[in-house]
Simulated assay, not measured.
Amino acid sequence: MSIPDWLQQNTLFTADPQIFLMAAVAALCIGLSKSGLSGTATLNVVLMAQAFGAKASVGLVLPLLIVADFMGFYLNRHGGSWRRVLPMAPPAIAGVIAGYFLLGEIDNVSARTVIGWLIIGLLGFKLLLDASKGALEILTGHPIFSWAMGLCAGITTMLANAAGPVMTVYLLSQKLEKKEHLGVFSRFFLFINLFKVPFSADLGIINPRSLMTNLVLLPGVVLGILLGWQILKRIPQKPFEWTLFVLTLVAAVWLIRG
């Protein structure tokens, strides 16, 4: 397989076909994650970072995420509500702003390691909640919990587009029914990813060549979200929760190992 010259000249692809393959798989993962299989979002982070570099991949992925967010919102429009997004919106906005300043300062390898361990810690917290048989559930309803999770989501999404697992752990702790979970998930990311656009453009990581690369990869995103939607329609509530948990754990470990 050879990459055409016109594609190399107008996009971020190089002559190496392995880069194109990794990007195509990552685009499929973006679609799968936006359908509700959120653990695959971190697989996309790793693949895109390896293909294009950590910082450049953040801007490259964002427009693809937004397209998938609109599709995910449409597919899940009958579940969830904007009211459930509101408690996390202010801290998430603050987290995006903090991440904007950190992105120019922090080493991206270190950022991925920190995010991976944070996600594992959150998964451990979820297991602790389940084992407590309701004794600790009062914590998840406290505004401080929502603010802490919103801030984590904002920072991680700006640094590495890796807030999917953070939001998954938060929503699992709220013990939402599957349809409600997917509806809130899709609404939150549609909002926060649109909010990130001017910050990414200001950093120069969204540019004409990255947008042309987005056009090439877009069919993979569409295929992923349609495939993921069909998979999730066939998974009952409990297997759904454990599928998300396992995918998120695997993705976090992969993120740490880089």
Rank of each mutant, 00 (worst) to 15 (best):
A27F: 06
V250Y: 05
T11D: 12
N161C: 00
F101N: 12
R234K: 13
M167R: 08
P87I: 14
I231C: 12
Q237F: 09
Q237W: 08
A252M: 05
F101P: 05
F20A: 15
L32W: 09
S2L: 11
Q230T: 10
I66S: 01
K126G: 01
L47P: 05
V169M: 15
L28M: 03
L244A: 14
E177K: 03
G116C: 03
S38V: 07
T243C: 15
Q237H: 14
I206N: 00
T156Q: 13
Y74N: 02
T213S: 13
S2V: 11
R77T: 01
I120V: 10
Q18S: 14
L118Y: 05
I119K: 09
P4Y: 11
L215K: 03
G59N: 00
I192G: 08
L62W: 04
E180S: 10
S2H: 15
N193R: 01
Q237N: 12
P198S: 03
F13E: 07
E137Q: 09
N76L: 09
W147L: 13
L255F: 05
L127D: 02
I93K: 00
T14I: 12
Q230A: 14
G79Q: 04
L86T: 14
W6V: 13
A51P: 02
P208W: 14
W82S: 07
R187L: 01
A26S: 11
I138H: 09
Q237G: 08
F52A: 01
R83K: 10
L190W: 06
W254H: 12
F199M: 15
I155F: 09
Q8T: 04
P239I: 01
L122K: 03
L215N: 02
Q9W: 02
A54H: 11
A160M: 00
L215H: 01
F20V: 15
Q174I: 08
A148S: 12
Q50W: 10
T113L: 06
L159N: 02
G228A: 03
K55L: 13
V197M: 06
T40K: 13
F188I: 00
V253G: 07
I144S: 10
L151D: 01
D5E: 15
V61M: 08
S173G: 03
L172I: 09
